[in-house]
Design a protein around this nucleic acid. Structure first.
Length: 945
RNA sequence: GCCUCGGUGGCGGAACUGGUAGACGCGCUGGAUUCAAAAUCCAGUUCCUUCGGGAGUGGGGGUUCGAUUCCCCCCCGAGGUACCA
């Protein structure tokens, strides 16, 4: 039999599908294991070679666990709601459901092509009503619960209502008696409850993206522009749904100790939550009833607080602005309003602000201090107001200098040379009773002092903001909410779920900034005279809990049965990209903790172990297009020439289709005459362009010198349509086979590392596969298997590789496992080993990596069941025992020689033998031997001096 | 700026707990086979070398009998984050 990848792959793909060998059910006799991939958004461009990297790793691990006796849940599905399908619908009129389904079909074919062992019976699609019924259901649960701070968990809002009616309330949010509560109108009560519900509506500043016609969550905005599409984002006040993720801030932080995630990922989440401890302090306002509340981590510097600054957006600003200052303040407010987030970030160091005309009283110095407003104080963090200590804070200092405000030194840092203002170090001065204390001590002292004087208390602050949950778009989950004429939000009854997304003819957002659903008047008005919510949920709604649905995907009574949830528990291994480090992973953890509070899931954390696979990058090949034309012709110039002239700025870099380029990815990549022809065909606008090569000019029809090489410039970057460098896995599979593709992606390097796609090395794997095949078949394709007993050498090769591969798979070091296979195959070939006993085990060992090839070989060896349902080999230490060990002989740590010693020789015996060696004399001549170190089984070091 | 990860031959990378640096693969060189080529096979391939050796894991210092591995300082790259009070 000759090795024919495509034939073998077709055969087994069909077999696996027909026999459903990857289907799993609850089986209490086996330990469970859950391996999850981040499910893809099915985009129109299909998968490129970068996408399957994580899927291959998880598939190998899944197959490995399965063969080790685990009942492995390994599902796949689609994150099917999202902007691109909707944008496409706006352009073409094709319903997003239709284009999404077409894309899914393509994804499925591409995935099957690589031989993944997903249980497709469990596929989920977030845009499927039977799925989003439960997304809506969880949303309603969030709506009907609040966070009970004392119990430290979510509780039904009904309990809170009952408490309000009985005891009234007093907390940071509100204060009223039971009588007052009962006297409130229904509307007033409901408005108040919105301050407690975990899913709630509020008017707030949101990230409005004009180009996308929707608001975005904080993690969907990067550098002041939308993450998708890079459109400008501005702050706008709107009535929106939000999720109270901040209620879970502390538990989200604590949970990070329990998970096995990379330090980078934990650090990112830590950062995003941004916990800081400080003091809340109230400042009286001169001639004014109210107070200004500030949050400070440096209460020790309060004696240096010589002015205050409020965020310009605060309502209080209007109250505090005096008549004389109102013109100046209004002018400043106009200026602030005119600035987008992008402006704010780009010129971050400009100091701006305005004086309100009012004064506060510093509670410790009892001095009158001016109240300013300034952009550098953020409305969202803390209370939106600060006490400014210009002597000990960079920003306050810059502000004070610019506006000529008083500066009082309160920390003497002379004992700490090199310490910056940011460091909490130094000795307190000019601060009454704090004088002489070290900063950390003074901070603790002030916490007590502030509390005992009734000025405020110790407080914890988080950077984490509540998550905006409304999108003014069509292609998302509709909210199961309707409003009465007072604007009170009413949940739909649970038996009305799912609230299906109605069909639409025009997908464009409305000009009023409402979702296109608002156009469907019949849908918006309900029979009972109410009005539906027309916004839809954001992308992360469906992805925040999909891993639970896989456990019981067709359940119509619950998001998943308790039996399924209690059996599968949580995700043991999650593999996916870092792009979801804060967004998806934070929201999922939040939802999971909420469901845990409701007693619906058994674990607090959803993802035990998480691996971030690196990106596979592409090589971008550019040609240099001169900005100046020659005789009216466009002119391309060889990269070599541009380099020599050093005038890169005179050229535009045009990405070319990488298939045209010879020596793709190498420093000498170039276009030859044939590639120039193809390039011109592809870009007819350059039909009569001149190509200035090292060897002369090429011009179509005029001068087609055959030797012309136009050197291209290569860069490593994203694999993207934009750069014409996308490599489709289907093409690689067609050329080399799926097993080769899988192994090559793994062989490229450690799974977490990013690396450029480079087809050059794939021959190595291809050769390996052919060599592997040649252990079973000769050149004519005749079987050469022998049934004789293996000898010690052969057994040693086998058990070495078994041991190594098991260890490597356990630590997700797939590249080294593949090296071990190569070494083993090379050695068995050298030994001319074609023995069934050895090769059969080796074939089992290779099965998770090369599922098609091994299945074929397995059948050939007489296997009747699929190899993927059988057991994984374990090594036997007996075969690895060495009778002698080769020790390196080192002098002062440098290896000078090697020597064999019996494996059971004692250190003393070895030392005695070492002294008899000729090398010993050579390197110790004329020197004193200070010490001889023998590390058993490892090495010998002789210290001379 | 801050946080995290990384820097090893011509290239991708290996060395897991401090113990022979460069496994495995690509590429390259030479040879065999061939009319020739591809494919295959064999040998070599960190650098320098007066062939004795010497140097060497971004740079500098330290701990150690011994450091790619641990500690300190610095340089470079990637990702995250940024008026967070």
């Amino acid at each position: 039999m000759q090795y024919n990848a495509s034939k073998i792959e077709r055969k087994w793909k069909d077999y696996w599908k027909e026999n459903n060998i990857y289907q799993v059910e609850i089986d209490k006799n086996k330990p469970k294991y859950y391996v999850l991939d981040m499910f893809p958004y099915p985009s129109g461009s299909g998968l490129h070679v970068g996408h399957p990297l994580g899927y291959i790793a998880s598939d190998i691990y899944t197959r490995y666990k399965r063969m080790n006796g685990f009942n492995v849940l390994h599902p796949m599905g689609y994150d099917a709601f999202g902007l691109p399908a909707e944008q496409y619908a706006i352009q073409t009129g094709v319903h997003p459901a239709q284009s999404t389904d077409e894309n899914i079909e393509r994804y499925r074919a591409q995935l099957d092509n690589i031989g993944f062992s997903f249980d497709w019976e469990r596929q989920v699609k977030t845009s499927d009503p039977s799925y989003y019924k439960w997304t809506q259901w969880i949303f309603l649960q969030l709506f009907e619960h609040y966070y009970d701070v004392e119990a430290d968990k979510a509780k039904p809002i009904e309990e809170l209502k009952a408490r309000f009616a009985q005891e009234g309330n007093s907390d940071d949010e509100s204060s009223f008696t039971a009588q007052e509560w009962q006297a409130m109108s229904k509307k007033e009560q409901e408005d108040l409850l919105m301050n407690y519900r975990l899913a709630y509506r509020k008017t707030g500043y949101v990230n409005w993206c004009e180009a996308l016609g929707t608001v975005l969550a904080n993690d969907e905005v990067k550098d002041g522009v939308s993450e998708r599409g890079g459109h400008p984002v501005e702050q706008r006040a709107m009535m929106q749904w939000s999720l109270r993720i901040t209620a879970y801030a502390e538990r989200l932080l604590d949970g990070l100790d329990q998970v096995e995630w990379s330090t980078a990922l934990v650090a990112m989440q830590n950062n995003w939550i941004g916990k800081s401890e400080g003091a809340q302090v109230f400042f009286d306002i001169v001639g004014h009833e109210g107070q200004i509340e500030v949050f400070t981590t440096r209460p020790d510097t309060i004696f240096g607080a010589t002015y205050m600054v409020l965020a310009p957006e605060l309502d209080l600003v209007q109250d505090l602005t005096t008549a004389e200052q109102s013109a100046e303040i209004n002018q400043y407010l106009d200026y602030v309003k005119s600035r987008s987030d992008l402006d704010r970030m780009s010129e971050s160091k400009t100091v701006t602000g305005a004086f309100t005309g009012s004064y506060a009283i510093n509670p410790f110095t009892e001095e009158k201090i001016p109240i300013w407003i300034g952009e550098y104080v953020l409305k969202d963090y803390g209370t939106g107001a600060i006490m400014a200590v210009p002597s000990d804070d960079e920003r306050d200092k810059a502000f004070a200098i610019k506006f000529n405000l008083k500066i009082v030194d309160v920390v003497d840092k002379s004992d700490y040379p090199g310490a910056t203002l940011h460091d909490k170090l130094g000795k307190i001065i000019n601060s009454d009773f704090l004088n002489g204390m070290e900063v950390p001590e003074a901070i603790q002292h002030m916490f007590k002092e502030i509390e005992s004087r009734g000025l405020g208390k110790k407080k914890v602050n988080y950077k984490l903001r509540d998550a905006n949950f409304s999108r003014q778009r069509y292609w998302g989950e509709p909210f199961p909410i309707k409003y009465d004429e007072d604007g009170i939000a009413h949940p739909l009854d649970y038996d009305e779920l799912p609230l299906e997304l109605p069909d639409l003819e025009d997908y464009k957002p409305t000009s009023s900034g409402k979702s296109p659903l608002a156009r469907l008047e019949n849908w918006v008005k309900t029979e009972d005279g109410m009005t539906r919510e027309t916004d839809t949920m954001p992308g992360y709604a469906g992805s925040s809990w999909y891993f639970l649905r896989y456990m019981d995907p067709n359940n119509e009574e619950a998001f998943a049965s308790q039996e399924a949830v209690n059996y599968w528990q949580d995700v043991d291994l999650y593999i996916g990209g870092t792009e979801h480090a804060v967004g998806h992973l934070m929201y999922s953890r939040f939802w999971h903790k909420f469901l845990y509070d409701l007693g619906l899931v058994p674990t607090e954390e959803p993802f035990k172990k998480l691996i971030n696979q690196g990106m596979i990058q592409g090589v971008i090949e550019y040609v240099y297009l001169s900005k100046e034309k020659e005789d009216g012709h466009s002119k391309f110039v060889c990269a070599r020439i541009v380099e020599e002239q050093g005038n890169e700025e005179d050229y535009a870099k045009i990405p070319v289709y990488v298939d045209f380029v010879q020596g793709y990815g190498s420093p000498n990549s170039y276009l030859n005459v044939e590639s120039i022809h193809r390039f011109v065909e592809w870009r007819p606008e350059y039909e009569d362009a001149i190509f200035q090569c090292g060897q002369g000019k090429y011009q179509k029809g005029k001068n087609e010198s055959v030797n012309s090489h136009l050197v291209t410039s290569s860069e490593i970057g994203k694999m993207s349509k934009r750069y014409f460098n996308v490599v489709n896995p289907d093409d690689v599979v067609a050329d080399y086979g799926a097993d080769c593709f899988r192994m090559y992606e793994m062989f490229l390097g450690p799974i977490e590392q990013s690396k450029p796609w480079d087809t050059n090395g794939i021959d190595g794997i291809s050769k390996f596969i052919r060599k592997y095949w040649s252990l079973f078949f000769d050149e004519e394709g005749k079987a050469i298997i022998s049934d004789s007993k293996p000898d010690d050498k052969e057994l040693k090769v086998l058990h070495t590789v078994i041991k190594k591969v098991n260890e490597d798979v356990e630590r997700f070091s797939f590249n080294t496992a593949i090296s071990a296979f190569m070494t083993a195959v090379n050695e068995l070939r050298k030994l001319k080993c074609h023995k069934r006993e050895i090769l059969n085990s080796l074939n089992h060992l290779l099965a998770p990596f090369a599922p098609f090839l091994t299945e074929e070989v397995h059948e050939f060896l007489g296997g009747t069941e699929s190899i993927h349902t059988l057991t994984y080999p374990e090594h036997n230490e007996e075969y690895l025992i060495e009778s002698s060990v080769t020790y390196p002989i080192c002098f002062n740590g440098k290896k000078r020689s090697e020597e064999n010693f019996p494996a059971d020789a004692t250190n003393d015996e070895i030392m005695a033998a070492v002294k008899e060696l000729t090398v010993f004399d050579k390197y110790t001549e004329g020197k004193t031997v200070r010490k001889i170190i023998v590390v058993p089984g490892r090495m010998i070091n002789i210290v001379v001096g």
